[in-house]
């Protein structure tokens, strides 16, 4: 387990390093940041002035080293637009996004796993078909459109929930449903597949041959093994949720990091965008690292080896 953890950690660090390079150079590969900041009407002199002012005229690797060494200390520079330290800006927005993603994940797990289990227990039954329909529709539903529909429905036609903003917990209900619904199908399908596979395993037959209660067979012997892959996918989905939060937060005007990303991208606020790409990616790296460990811990074949 220790060797395993160490290996995973090294991998995670390597990925983090690569991503820091990517997220930094991405903006340079994509075009001239000075021109982008200056705007379309700027003259060549103005662009040149911005270039020297922000230090874009220096070699990229030097800029990267400077950026990354500061970033390690938690300093991502100042936001061009908001005029405050990027770190402070992001920290002030993170709670909203984490609340949203966390509650959406909880929603997806609470809906997805039981539905997957039921669908696997009664394959081809009505419940299975309903679950499958929900899953298939979920894949095809554009999240922003679904969000708008819910806003129309519950914000105005049956006005029981606030349509936008992030002032109270009620503001999080609709975004949670939208974001959570998006992750539900994959968790549900995976639980169903895992359960079907596990239920036909020899050790389930052994458990039944021992005369164990059906609930013991189901929860102790089957579900435990079936959820192992669900754990890692849930972590991946959580990462996707952070990405998806850009769209959802924009639609619902929730002032989290996703909304911040959209704002700063529109305003060519480089330090913020770079920092956000790195933060989002690192979040994902940490999540997969944790899920790998959790997986290993759940599976004795990895844990005790």
């Amino acid at each position: 387990m220790l060797v395993y953890t160490a290996k995973r950690l090294v991998l995670a660090l390597l990925v983090a390093f690569t991503i820091s390079v990517l997220s930094f150079s991405l903006l340079f590969l994509a075009g001239d940041p000075a021109a982008a900041i200056a705007g379309e009407t700027a003259t060549d002199q103005e662009i040149e002035r911005i270039r020297t002012m922000f230090g874009f005229d220096r070699p990229i690797w030097l800029q990267y080293l400077e950026w990354v060494s500061r970033a390690i200390q938690g300093d991502f520079g100042r936001s061009y637009y908001f005029g405050m330290p990027v770190t402070e800006l992001i920290l002030s927005r993170i709670p909203v996004t984490l609340t949203l993603a966390g509650s959406a994940m909880a929603f997806a797990l609470v809906v997805g796993i039981p539905m997957g289990v039921i669908a696997a227990l009664y394959p081809n039954s009505i419940i299975d078909r309903i679950a499958l329909t929900i899953a298939v529709c979920g894949q095809a539903l554009p999240s922003f459109w679904f969000a708008l529909m819910l806003i129309v429905l519950f914000g105005f036609m049956i006005p029981i929930l606030p349509p936008s903003g992030s002032d109270s917990w009620q503001h999080f209900i609709l975004p949670t449903i939208v974001l959570g619904y998006y992750a539900t199908p994959s968790l549900m399908r995976l639980t169903r597949t895992g359960m079907l596979e596990v239920l036909s395993a020899d050790y389930i037959r052994t458990a039944r041959a021992k005369g164990l209660f059906p609930r013991t067979v189901l929860f102790k012997h089957a579900l435990r093994n079936a959820v192992i892959p669900v754990v890692s996918v849930a972590a991946v989905e959580f990462g996707f949720m952070l990405g998806g939060s850009i769209v959802i937060e924009t639609v619902f005007a929730l002032h989290g990091t996703g909304y911040l990303a959209w704002e700063s991208i529109r305003r060519a606020d480089f330090p913020t965008v770079q920092a956000l790409i790195l933060v989002f990616s690192l979040f994902y790296v940490v999540l997969t690292f944790v899920s790998d460990l959790l997986n290993a811990w759940l599976d004795p074949r990895i844990r005790v080896a």
Binding site: D202, Y203, T206, R208, A209, K210, G211, N225, L298, D299
Partner: peptide, 19 residues
């Protein structure tokens, strides 16, 4: 089952729960 009458299966490699 398992009390008055018990069964031993063919596949010892997969008949025990790995978890």
């Amino acid at each position: 089952r398992g009390s008055r009458m018990a069964m031993i299966f063919q596949e010892p490699m997969t008949s025990l729960n790995p978890a």
